[in-house]
């Protein structure tokens, strides 16, 4: 059997005594975009943080190309997995180029080589931020910042790219452009992309695979058509929706919350 690019097996995590994730199984192959959807506090961000080793699961394993991440040190992992975090970053004055080049941190000792600079240039072009390189990062708009952070993540030359709410705080056009960019990067650079995302319509349109989480367990997984059904959404979110299937995607229209719905 050929190993999947990213495989999460029986992963469980708890904060002191509260179970956050229990028995999560998940797979993403190269070229693929997979989305984790689920209500607030269902464990989406925690799952991403277990994959990039910010948090330590108490059970289960994460494999990259068949290799368990517990066997990698943090520097080795940084060459395999890169992340675009959700938190709005405040920093001291750094130029966009500084931020993108930071992606080479897991590789350099002191001096950047010509190769490092070529990789950064390639990444800047693939993300389309050529005109921003000399600007200051903290003066950019939300959409520009997100592109720069993606460029930094790509400069890390990852096999797996994790994104936490990549479309938060973006306008409609930027949302579509960013997700389109992410999908193209997955296709062209052989990256496995896993993102946590709230917007079910965007998830439906840009994902190859969807994992729907409820209370820290996978409730349903598969293609958007199979997972984003009105029954599943009612069960997981407690919301009545109407779904409309079109040529390119499935569209979800929220109707109303269900009163008697109990999150647990």
């Amino acid at each position: 059997m050929v190993d999947m690019r990213l495989r999460v097996k029986d992963l469980s995590f708890k904060y002191s005594t509260t179970d956050v994730l229990s028995g999560v199984n998940l797979e993403v192959d190269e070229h693929e975009v997979a989305s984790i959807v689920g209500p607030n506090a269902s464990g989406k961000t925690t799952l991403l943080r277990c994959i990039n080793k910010v948090l330590k699961p108490y059970m289960g394993t994460v494999f990259i190309d068949g290799k368990a991440i517990v066997k990698m040190n943090i520097k080795e992992l940084a060459r395999e997995v890169s992340s675009v975090p959700q938190i709005a970053l405040r920093s001291f004055p750094l130029t966009v180029l500084d931020v993108v080049l930071m992606g080479r941190t897991p590789y350099v000792k002191w001096q950047l080589t010509k190769n490092d600079l070529e990789i950064a240039e390639e990444s800047i072009k693939s993300v389309g931020i050529e005109n921003l390189t000399s600007k200051y990062f903290d003066e950019l708009s939300g959409g520009e910042m997100q592109r720069v952070l993606i460029s930094k993540a790509i400069t890390q030359e990852p096999k797996v790219l994790l994104l936490d709410e990549p479309t938060a705080h973006l306008d409609v056009k930027n949302q579509l452009e960013i997700l389109d960019l992410i999908r193209n990067l997955a296709r062209n650079k052989d990256i496995a992309v896993l993102m946590a995302i709230h917007d079910l319509n965007l998830a439906a349109r840009f994902s190859d695979r969807i994992y729907m989480i409820k209370n820290g367990s996978i409730f349903a997984s598969g293609s958007p058509m199979d997972v984003l059904t009105s029954e599943n959404i009612r069960e997981v979110y407690g919301v009545e929706v109407r779904t409309i299937k079109s040529e390119e995607s499935i569209h979800i229209l929220p109707i109303k919350p269900i009163r008697s719905f109990n999150q647990t």
């Binding site: 943090i74 940084a78 890169s82 992340s83 975090p85 970053l89 500084d98 930071m102 941190t105």
Partner: peptide, 21 residues
Amino acid sequence: NCSWDLNALSMGDEVAMNLGI
């Protein structure tokens, strides 16, 4: 010698961790 670490850390702990620090 810690310049790169400091660059990464000044962007936040989680970013630094993801960069292999």
